[in-house]
């Protein structure tokens, strides 16, 4: 099976993942939207330092699974534990947990009325209660890291899609999260901008960030992920190392799906 991808990052060395204790634990998560069952008793564990990719057809529940991790979606039943905190407990401050879990969206969702710098400093100041100077320093460092230090005083509308997404990543990183969630971070981008975003993500993976990524970027998966999860109809159908899932898929539905996205 040919799995070369035009957007494959140049770095070919695969990342060595040093895994730690379980940081995300999802136990028998079911999510219903009315009659529709978006997630059907899904269980999943993520170790510290893991880069987990979630693939699957449209409507299979990938986003819903991702959004259950930081309780953007509240599971109908089941238990989510993040960094030792059981999210379903009534007294848990969800906002506190979210400070530790960054999220990157398909459509960037930068705050259009704020400059790039303000986008990256706002939550630091009002949630982390950092002084404006400290927050600014963190922001400038991160903007340099994602490769757009010169755009700090521009508004999001003045940036290209790839630049906006990199700012969105910087905005999430500014909270110094323990986990980063990515929901199709490159699928709203023009092809020539995909690489610049993947490179930033690759760098993060190399630094040992725990990442859960919904994306069909095979190149990235092979280079950065240590595990790939294939979902279909609200269930996890198959799970394994990238090369194993991509090259020797065990399930017919996985094979069918892969053959569709590769051709």
């Amino acid at each position: 099976m040919d799995t070369t991808n035009p957007t494959e990052p140049v770095e070919t060395e695969t990342i060595v993942h040093t895994l730690g204790k379980t940081i995300i634990q999802m136990e028998a998560i079911t999510k219903r939207f009315g009659e529709l069952v978006a997630l059907d008793t899904v269980s999943l564990e993520v170790q510290r330092g893991e880069v987990l990719m979630i693939i699957g057809p449209s409507g299979s529940g990938k986003s819903t699974l991702l959004r259950c991790i930081n309780y953007m979606e509240v599971p109908t039943s089941g238990r989510v534990t993040v960094d030792g905190i059981d999210m379903s407990r009534r007294r848990v401050n969800i906002n506190k947990v979210r400070e530790e879990v960054g999220m990157v969206f398909q459509r960037f969702e930068l705050f259009p009325h704020l400059t790039v710098l303000e986008n990256v400093t706002l939550a630091q100041r009002i949630v982390r209660k950092r002084k404006s100077g400290d927050a600014g320093e963190v922001a400038h460092d991160l903007l340099r890291k994602v490769g757009i230090p010169e755009k700090a005083n521009n508004y999001p509308a003045q940036l290209s899609g790839g630049q906006q997404q990199r700012v969105a990543i910087a905005r999430a990183l500014a909270m110094q999260p323990k986990i980063m969630l990515f929901d199709e971070p490159t699928s709203a981008l023009d092809p020539e901008m995909i690489k610049e975003v993947l490179d930033v993500m690759l760098e993060l993976a190399r630094e040992g960030m725990t990442m859960v990524v919904v994306s069909h970027e095979m190149g990235f998966a092979r280079a950065a992920a240590n595990r790939v999860v294939f979902m279909d109809q609200g269930r996890i159908v198959e799970m394994g190392e990238p090369d194993q899932v991509f090259d020797q898929p065990q399930h017919e539905r996985t094979q069918l799906f892969l053959s569709k996205i590769l051709h």
Partner: peptide, 16 residues
């Protein structure tokens, strides 16, 4: 809605 979600995902409260 995405604006609201982006803010909440950063740990901002509903009021913030």
């Amino acid at each position: 809605r995405g604006q609201n979600e982006a803010a909440r995902s950063l740990g901002m409260s509903h009021v913030q």
